[in-house]
Amino acid sequence: MASDVPSPSPAPSSHPLAPAPYFVRRQTAETGDTNTLVLAPMDGGPVPPALPGQFNMLYVFGVGEAAISLSGDPTDSTQVVHTVRNAGRITAALAQLPPGKAVGVRGPYGRGWPVDAAAGRDVVLMAGGLGLPPLRPVLYHFLSHRAQYGRIEVVYGARTPKDLVYYDQIQEWRQRSDLRFQVTVDAADRSWYGDVGLVTARIPDVRFEPGNTIAFLCGPEIMMKYAARDLEARGIPRSSIWISMERNMKCAVGICGHCQFGPEFVCRDGPVFRYDVVRDWLAAREI
């Protein structure tokens, strides 16, 4: 064909909402319904830089997309780590992907945890259920810059011992002398020697200097609501408490409307919010 034949201008190859191809490096079971996926770009390139608390849209070819928090080490530019609970069509498809299989990734999106604001202060991390994975990157960050922070207190609660994620890593964290990591479960049989009770029940035992503490909470809304209330009662100002919200998301860029929470788009203005900004919405019904 003659080279001077005009051809229609080629379609742009990438859409801002098109996923980039990654592959599954590893998939490990955390609990009966929750897996951790390690994903790396197909082209061998680096992953886009992400902040602790941000999320990606994970895509399974022919199935669809779901918003999943990043839960790996934020300084690792070779791969992304996501801990996913098998709770729907897309997450079920993700859970079935063996190593080598393609996964689409777009992101990272949203605002993360304000790690800079934590410098020089005591830090309280409270996680309920699958609230630990979105907090793990921030814990990695704190531990790799340990000297910049005061006390680090982590409280992690799950329904039962079988629902605890990152079990082996938690054992390691619990051995450390520069970090206090408490674990509690709502219910347990006699094989469990740890605490039993809600995460909020551990709050009286968490040590911090109230006027110089920042708290990051992630878990079910009801857990965050009561944990924030109790931390406030112990003297942490509302403006020093941060929570991570979850909503249905389709676009992740603030145009599909699904994730609205009061005036906020959780995908764009969150998922991490300062508690005093969203407190009224958290208190109201069906927002």
Binding site: P8, A11, P12, S13, S14, H15, L17, A18, P19, P21, F23, M42, F61, G100, K101, A102, G104
Partner: peptide, 18 residues
């Protein structure tokens, strides 16, 4: 339609809707 993706060996390729 926003985009179309086709399988390409182990990966996939995405073409934006013109």
């Amino acid at each position: 339609r926003l985009w179309t993706a086709t399988r390409d060996g182990p990966t996939f390729a995405v073409i934006s809707e013109p």
